[in-house]
Design a protein around this nucleic acid. Structure first.
Lengths: 143, 143
DNA sequence: CTTGACCCCGTAGTCAACTCCGGGGTGACA
DNA sequence: TGTCACCCCGGAGTTGACTACGGGGTCAAG
């Protein structure tokens, strides 16, 4: 007889998985609800029993998050992988993400420069009247 | 007798103010609830009547938002101005904001670079297996 | 046999900054 | 007089990614 998909020695409880993958129990259950993690088999007491590669999937999610993907996009990525889909779809997703990051970067950079300029021009001494920062915000011409 | 703070010809309704300041009626009422805008006097029918300089304050808020200040910080800025406070406090707020922006910029830049690298290395052709993007997410070594 | 750590579930709360909803009054115009 | 845009209010809903809560079962150690 083959292994029959039974409960294995190497399986983990949700807490063990959380520790191993540097995650949190609640977060894992949340990902399951969101459909990012497949519902694992349960042992007799109803506890979730995760096979070792669950940690891999969790880390996949964590890494994708550090690249700025949303959970929705990560779900897409995951199912693209699952479906043995073509690379074009993956690349397209990455591209969209990249464009988004670029836009946000440009935005923040603009803010930063404007604020740095104002900060530099403000002596930090004296009263608020005449303060370049306040004046810039007050002026019609700041647009 | 002096002007007695009466209702003036030049006052605006909330809708007029919204149009003038490029804002929205609901947003203005929200800002009032948040304490960013002082409750204006009401005319006989209970309508808010805004003096002309209300638009200035609204634009102050909008500009501060484009510099990345949160509404809470804007409230602070506004009351610093109100209180005829010293410039040091304003500058300090700007500094904190600046540090925050810098941190977020560095973060996003890191993401962007990593993703751009992955994107460049992905041909966009073939199946998902072997795709550098997917592999990077899968690998232990991606950190 | 009790304590404490762990697990289960569904649901509600958090944060920011709005945005919308329902129900009802007001004002100008034809 | 009708109609339509505009105004009032309190309160609920939105988004994203969790995080917390309450109430209850389980399990290994002492």
């Amino acid at each position: 007889m083959a292994t029959m998909n039974a409960l294995s020695e190497s399986d983990m409880t949700i807490g063990q998985l959380a520790r191993r993958a540097g995650s949190d129990v609640e977060t894992i259950r949340y990902y399951e609800r969101r459909g990012l993690l497949p519902p694992p088999p349960r042992s007799g007491n109803g506890y979730r029993r995760y096979p070792p590669d669950a940690a891999r999937r969790l880390r996949f999610i964590r890494r994708a998050k550090t690249l700025g993907f949303t959970l929705a996009e990560i779900g897409e990525l995951l199912s693209l992988r699952e479906a043995g889909n073509n690379r074009a779809a993956v690349k397209e997703l990455a591209r969209a993400r990249l464009a988004d990051l670029d836009a946000r970067l440009a935005d923040l950079q603009r803010m930063r420069d404007a604020l740095a300029d104002l900060d530099q021009r403000c002596s930090g001494r004296g009263t608020v009247s005449g303060c370049p920062i306040i004046e810039a915000l007050d002026q019609e011409t700041t647009a």
